[in-house]
């Protein structure tokens, strides 16, 4: 073997060659930095704030951070469960929370009932229609939610289209009050929440092997039986993820306008509150 003698010497690695093995981590690093610096750490910080002793009279639990400037509402370096104790013993906060959770569950339920069939419809739609439906579904999510809420208000107003339709059909002679009701609140929140739910379930359905459905039909199962015995059970894991996303979003979608004082939910909550009579 004359190999060693003919060797002309080793190759001089360049900087790029040396970095190459780490390329995949280098490529991920901007995302990791963004996620850590502006998502994970801030969330942990928010959690930490909730364990500070509060300084002012009105810092309320987690939300206290929102009004803080230069450390006004909390005492740094302290650990206390006070905020939580106060939160859970305060009738007002508890009523808000119970209402929030209850309403979020209602929104989640309605969302799931509407989302699954819609997702299945999209899944089975021919290609062109499918693209159109995806665009329609994603539109409310990407649009400004104020525009959405206000469009709905206009629709449901006493002189709105829905009421005109109701009177035209003759269900009722005079307009039914739809705005500022549990109904209108649910309708608007579901619309804010449902797009991701539908898209996640649709994507889940698409991961299923289509030949399973064909096989089931070939073995003599009706379309309904096929759905119930094959498609649906296989889509459960992805649907559970969609459910989780829906709950988080339902809570969030509720919290946002109520914190910010959306007229609609404020009214709702105050009615709810007056019934329970606040101390």
């Amino acid at each position: 073997m004359t190999v060693v003698e003919t060797d002309l010497g080793g190759y001089q690695k360049t900087v790029v060659d040396r970095l190459a093995p780490y390329a995949k981590y280098l490529l991920l690093s901007p995302m990791i930095l963004l996620m850590l610096g502006f998502f994970v750490i801030p969330l942990l910080w928010l959690l930490r704030i909730s364990f500070y002793e509060s300084r002012g009279a009105s810092g309320f639990g987690i939300g206290g951070a929102a009004g803080q400037e230069g450390g006004g509402f909390y005492v740094e370096g302290t650990w206390t469960l006070d905020n939580y104790v106060r939160f859970f013993t305060d009738d007002y906060f508890m009523s808000v929370m119970m209402f929030t959770i209850g309403f979020a569950l209602l929104v989640t339920l309605v969302t799931m009932i509407l989302a699954y069939p819609m997702a299945y419809y999209i899944y089975r739609a021919p290609p062109k229609l499918k693209t159109a439906l995806i665009l329609i579904v994603i539109l409310p999510k990407l649009s400004n939610m104020l525009v959405l809420v206000y469009g709905l208000q206009m629709l449901l107003a006493n002189n709105g289209l829905v009421n005109e339709l109701i009177m035209l059909v003759g269900v009722s002679d005079e307009p039914i009050k739809l705005v500022y009701t549990l109904f209108s609140a649910t309708v608007s929140k579901v619309l804010l929440v449902i797009p991701y739910t539908i898209l996640v379930i649709t994507a889940t359905l698409h991961t299923l092997d289509p030949s399973l459905r064909e096989a089931s039909r070939g073995l003599g199962a009706s379309p309904f039986k096929t759905f119930w015995l094959v498609t649906f059970p296989l889509s459960v894991p992805g649907t559970l993820i969609a459910l989780l996303i829906t709950i988080v979003w339902a809570l969030g979608a509720f919290v946002s306008p109520s914190l910010l004082g959306n007229p609609e939910t404020q009214t709702l909550r105050s009615r709810f509150r007056s019934r329970r009579s606040r101390t």
Binding site: V3, T6, Y11, D17
Partner: peptide
Amino acid sequence: GDIYIRGRRMNDVPLEK
């Protein structure tokens, strides 16, 4: 193992070179 091209050891040489 090793790979030589025209007597030059290629193991560490990136493919574009």
